[in-house]
């Protein structure tokens, strides 16, 4: 989105003036751009968040790509391929945004492959039936949209711009998922059961996508002070519960949580307890599919090495030929 950031930290004068301008821009709710001075902690925190977000998009291609060959019709295959291609695109927009903070994309890829970087825990759950593809679109992409819409206003310009592009594309993802479930819900009893089972399994993991509860989310406060995050984890989660509680009725199905209700006093939607121990386990690499997701990512990268080498060799050859032709002329 722009050339990598210039080095700016230097003399105390430069830092003091830079910090002052940075603080003013944040106070005005303006945007920080790649070549601006920014606190090292801001740069580091954003690099971590944006690269994790990018990794999530890339790893997120796997559970769905696994179902392309088994999608029930040519139309559904075409839709699923388009969706998986979008996820790849989203990953690339985000890697570009992260690169403007000064970390090379190859380094981020290396970190992911070496298991040093994290990605969303949601993609470590297995996708067992076709109805899961519906539930992923509706619940997982739905939760992602809830999280991402406020990020369009993130204080870091390139991140916000990438999110605008991504959000425009996500709404198709959520609708196609909902439609899959709607068709199953209006099908045979076996199809309805399959749709309900998928919702039962994806409900809690999708709620946990918003991150730990506010009192256990150490980075949230600083992130909100920097105008990166606009709403707390619990607030976004509560909004999401309200949306799906309404939407699930259109499916004629139910959410697997008897405690979902609107609290008139707080004006917030509430849900039953979530298993945060499970969340921590999955995040720590001990979820049902962590090892397999990493293995696939590594294989894809290694299997693609010859393509990257060939493309680089071809570019070199073309450049040499062009140079020779210029000399000869």
């Amino acid at each position: 989105m722009a050339a990598p950031a210039a080095t700016q930290h230097g003399s105390p004068d430069v830092d003091a003036a830079g910090q002052q301008l940075f603080d003013e821009l944040i106070a005005q709710d303006s945007r920080i751009e790649p070549r601006d001075w920014m606190p090292e902690a801001y740069r580091k925190s954003l690099t971590r968040q944006i690269s994790q977000h990018a990794h999530s998009e890339i790893i997120g291609m796997q559970p769905e790509a696994n179902w392309i060959t088994r999608a029930p019709s040519l139309k559904r295959k075409a839709i699923l391929m388009a969706k998986v291609q979008d996820e790849a695109g989203h990953g690339l927009y985000l890697y570009s945004a992260a690169e403007t903070l000064g970390t090379a994309r190859d380094k981020m890829t290396e970190d992911l492959i070496a298991g040093k970087a994290r990605y969303s825990s949601i993609f470590n759950y297995p996708v067992l039936t076709w109805a899961d593809i519906g539930a992923i679109g509706w619940l997982v992409d739905g939760a992602a949209i809830c999280n991402q819409v406020p990020l369009c206003r993130a204080s870091y310009g390139p991140y916000g711009r990438a999110m605008v592009r991504i959000c425009k594309e996500e709404s198709f993802h959520q609708r196609q998922g909902f439609e899959i479930l709607l068709e199953l819900a209006n099908g045979t009893q076996a199809q309805r059961d399959m749709a309900q089972d998928a919702i039962n399994r994806w409900y809690a993991p999708s709620l946990m996508m918003f991150g730990p509860p506010d009192d256990d989310s150490p980075n949230s406060k600083q992130s909100m002070a920097w105008n990166i995050k606009r709403f707390s984890n619990d607030e976004l989660r509560s909004r999401f519960v309200g949306m799906i509680a309404e939407q699930v009725r259109a499916l004629g199905l139910t959410l697997p949580d008897p405690d979902v209700r609107f609290n008139e006093d707080t004006g917030r939607w509430e849900h039953g307890p979530l298993d945060w121990e499970e969340f921590k386990e999955v995040l720590a690499g001990r979820g049902p599919c962590n090892a397999q997701r990493m293995e696939r990512r590594r294989e894809a990268h290694e299997d693609g090495a010859w393509v990257r080498e060939a493309a680089a060799a071809y570019a070199d050859k073309q450049a040499r030929r062009a140079a020779t032709a210029t000399e000869a002329a």
């Binding site: 297995p126 090892a291 397999q292 293995e295 696939r296």
Partner: peptide
């Protein structure tokens, strides 16, 4: 499903 939970090898 491609979800066999097998162990990932070390990075190459």
């Amino acid at each position: 499903t491609g979800d066999d939970g097998s162990t990932a090898p070390a990075a190459g």
